[in-house]
Design a binder for these strands. Sequence first.
DNA 1: CTTTATATATAGGATGACCGATATCTTTAA
DNA 2: TTAAAGATATCGGTCATCCTATATATAAAG
Lengths: 101, 101
Amino acid sequence: MGYKYGCDMRGMLSFQIMWLLSKKSMHGEAIAKEIEKRRGDKPKAGTLYPALKELKGANLIKGEQEGKTIVYSLTPSGREALKHAVMYFCRSFGDVFEEAK
Amino acid sequence: MGYKYGCDMRGMLSFQIMWLLSKKSMHGEAIAKEIEKRRGDKPKAGTLYPALKELKGANLIKGEQEGKTIVYSLTPSGREALKHAVMYFCRSFGDVFEEAK
DNA sequence: CTTTATATATAGGATGACCGATATCTTTAA
DNA sequence: TTAAAGATATCGGTCATCCTATATATAAAG
C-alpha cells in the first residue's frame, strides 16, 4: 500500500478504522472506501477483515447484522481507548501537520 | 512501545526519523530522544539502529563520523521522498488533527 | 582503577499491516 | 439464464516495527 514514498508508510490501520467508526457506524466496504479517500489506496479484503476481527476480539468494536451487511460501531471501551490513542497520535506527529499547513 | 492504547500504534518510525532529520542533522541518541519527547517512549537501540541502517541502505539518509558520534542527515533523494511522504501522511490522517484541535 | 553513562550495533522473537489468491453468498444487469 | 458486482472471509506470505539480551568502545565520575 504505502511503499511509493521511499520510507515505509504502513501502520495505524486499526487506529484509523476506529477513528472512522467514531464518526459514523459503517459496514466493511464503506470503511474501505473511506480509507481509500484518504490514503489513495483501498485496503484489500485480506487486510481489512482480519483487522476488524481483531478489534472485535479486543472488544473495541462490535458488528451487527443489518439486512445483508454487517454494520460496525465502537463499543464504549473502544470509544475510551480511541480518546487516548488520538492524544498519543497528536503528541507524536502533531508537528508534522503544524508545519505542513 | 504503543500497546497501551487499545489498538496498535506502531509504525511510521522511518518516516518520523526522516522528518526529524529534515529539521536538523543528529546522531542516533539525539534522534531517540526527540522521538521520546513526542511518543513518550524512547525507541530502544534494537529498534532505532536497524531503522537507520535500512534508511542508509536506501540512500535516504547518510551518516558521517564526527568525533565520537555518527551524525545522520537526509540525502537529496531522502529530502525529495520526504516531501511526498508528508503529503501522503497529511492526506491520510489530516482530519484526525483538524478535529483534535 | 573501577563503575556508570553514552553511543553504536547485532541477534532472535513477536506481531500488525500489507499483499494476492481463493471461496461463498446475494443482488443486479445483460 | 448467466455474468458481473458487492460483501464477507480465510490462507499463506513478506516486511517494518517493536522488544530483550548481548556486545563493544569511549568518556566521565567515584
